[in-house]
Design a binder for these strands. Sequence first.
DNA 1: AAAAACCTTACAGCCGTTGTAAGTGTTTTT
DNA 2: AAAAACACTTACAACGGCTGTAAGGTTTTT
Lengths: 226, 226
Amino acid sequence: MKRIAIVEDEFLMREELSDMLRKAEYQVDEISEFEDVTGQLLALSPDLILLDLNLPGTSGFQICREMKQKSTIPVLVLTSRDQLRDELHALDLGADEYLTKPCGKERLLARVTNVMKRYEGRSNLLEGAGFLLDRQTYTLYIHNSSVILPKNQGKILEVFLTHGDEIVSKEELCLAIWGTTEFIDENALQVNLTRLKKTMANLMMRQQVIPVRGIGYRLIAEGETL
Amino acid sequence: MKRIAIVEDEFLMREELSDMLRKAEYQVDEISEFEDVTGQLLALSPDLILLDLNLPGTSGFQICREMKQKSTIPVLVLTSRDQLRDELHALDLGADEYLTKPCGKERLLARVTNVMKRYEGRSNLLEGAGFLLDRQTYTLYIHNSSVILPKNQGKILEVFLTHGDEIVSKEELCLAIWGTTEFIDENALQVNLTRLKKTMANLMMRQQVIPVRGIGYRLIAEGETL
DNA sequence: AAAAACCTTACAGCCGTTGTAAGTGTTTTT
DNA sequence: AAAAACACTTACAACGGCTGTAAGGTTTTT
């Protein structure tokens, strides 16, 4: 059974949505605390997020942006704001659908189904700048084509992607590759890093792995400053 | 530069759309002959289809359905029909977006961009009943997970998928796997077929490869009749 | 029951990935 | 400027998964 999280501050509206979705055989989680909504959503990791824009505290736009950065969960914006500007902004932030209230039960359900259908099979795709990485097979999608990365290279890239632009320590990388931080063979890691760098260069990816002396490595976009 | 095909019978509307899209840096192809629209679209194979519903000849619904069966090109339905019923029907047929005319230049462009963004990297995904197959890497997406098929098994499955539910001859399969119909090693093909069957069974796929004695093979859905 | 078509299994060769090792560059420290 | 620490490169052998071969079994047709 698919799970949907509702982010909506008006109690009545929330209950109405919740009811409707439950009747349509979805499992519904309601967000009623508007502190660290992003964190709550990540913890729930639903199959879809129904998001209102007017919220106490952090705006819906901000939540949408953060969720799109940190996950691949589809976001359906459902709001009473019918300004074109808001719609464009939400879509630009990566919202998967934008509906204005009131929108009718059937239309909402149809759009919910539609969005979910689009995401079928995508649940394990990690998003990088200009490419996608499948966390299970390490298939890399870039420039309208796809390549399978060797397992180790895939694991390394995965770690980088899940760390945004932070520095990743060698220990973390070793842990990801071999499941242990002990007995790190620094050289083995080094070799695998070199191999990843080479394949990234061959694929003309906009990102680059750079060393942070004594600490670890970082993934930076081309031309980016330190 | 991304290519968009417009399927719209009213000349003025077509020109208006075309202009707008060209100004937004898209390459536009207009369909003005409404015989075998599906064939024309497949030949053009644009990155997106803008589809009207009221057309002379075949209905937009039918075209949408056929295109979704035969390709993975995204379809944006743009119509003056504002009946909820039509919208639900179109979405059900797999339309990726439904907008009612008039909808405003900016909204249309935003939705076009949005749909295209969703499809980034998906251009090589073949669609089967309940699963997706990447034509380049033979990564198979099913049940919210993904597996890499060995090359030969992938090629065989690819041939089946591009043939719908038709019978595929052994020659065709050999051609796909080894690039030649001569010197067919029937047994080698046989072994590869067996392996594919086994992996499909392990993945609990709803489809099955069945032999057509003396002719070739077919892919059928579970429980389907001959 | 014989023949034809189809299927199964095991095995050895091949190729890509991996860790090892030995050596070269580069940066920082003294 | 030399030493030390860190980072990189390259080649190679071991391993594992994929592949075609071969030999034999099963099912369907005649």
